[in-house]
Amino acid sequence: MNTRRTGIRHHFQKMTNSTMVTEFLLMGFVDKGEIRFLHTMLFLLMYLSTLLGNLLIVSATTLYQNLHTPMYFFLRNMSILDMCFISVTVPNACVNSFTRNRTISLAGCATQLFLLIYCACVELLFLTVMAHGRSGAICQPLLYPVIMNQRFCVWATLFSLLSGLIYAAVHTGNTFRLSFCRSDVIYQFFCDIPPLLSNSCSDTFNSILLLIVSDIVFCGGCFFFITMSYFHIFSTVQKFPTRERGKAFSTCVPHILVVSVFLSSITYVYLKPSAASETIQDMILSSFYTIIPPLLNAMIYSFRNKQVKDAVRKVLTNFVSGKQ
Rank of each mutant, 00 (worst) to 15 (best):
M1Y: 13
T3C: 10
R4T: 15
R5D: 14
H10Y: 12
Q13M: 08
M15I: 10
M15Q: 08
S18A: 15
S18W: 06
V30C: 13
V30Y: 13
R36L: 12
R36Q: 10
L42R: 11
F43E: 15
L44M: 15
M46A: 15
L48G: 04
S49I: 08
I57A: 04
T62V: 02
Y64D: 08
P70K: 03
M71W: 09
Y72P: 01
I80E: 01
L81W: 05
D82R: 00
D82W: 09
N92C: 11
S97H: 00
R100H: 15
R102K: 12
A107I: 13
G108M: 07
C109F: 06
L113G: 02
L115A: 12
L116Y: 13
L116T: 10
I117E: 10
I117G: 03
C121I: 08
C121Q: 14
V122F: 02
E123C: 09
L125A: 04
L125W: 01
F126N: 00
F126A: 00
L127H: 05
L127A: 04
G133W: 02
R134K: 15
I138K: 07
C139I: 14
L142S: 09
V146Y: 03
V146E: 00
R151Y: 04
V154G: 03
V154K: 11
V154W: 10
W155M: 10
S163G: 06
G164Y: 07
A168W: 10
A168C: 05
V170M: 07
V170C: 07
V170H: 04
H171E: 09
H171Q: 12
H171M: 14
T172N: 03
T172D: 06
T175C: 08
T175S: 05
D184T: 07
I186N: 00
F189A: 01
F190T: 02
I193F: 04
P194Y: 01
P194F: 00
L196C: 06
L196S: 01
L197W: 13
C201W: 04
F205P: 03
N206K: 11
S207V: 13
L211T: 15
I216F: 13
C219H: 14
C219L: 14
G220Y: 13
G220N: 11
F224I: 13
I226L: 04
M228R: 15
F231M: 09
H232F: 12
F240E: 05
P241M: 02
E244T: 14
G246L: 02
K247F: 14
C252Y: 12
V261T: 10
F262L: 10
L263G: 08
S265I: 00
I266Q: 03
I266P: 01
Y268F: 14
Y268C: 09
K272G: 06
S277N: 10
S277G: 05
E278K: 06
D282S: 09
D282K: 12
M283I: 07
L285R: 14
S287F: 05
F288E: 11
Y289A: 02
T290E: 09
P293W: 12
L295P: 01
S302P: 06
F303D: 03
N305I: 06
T317R: 10
G322S: 15
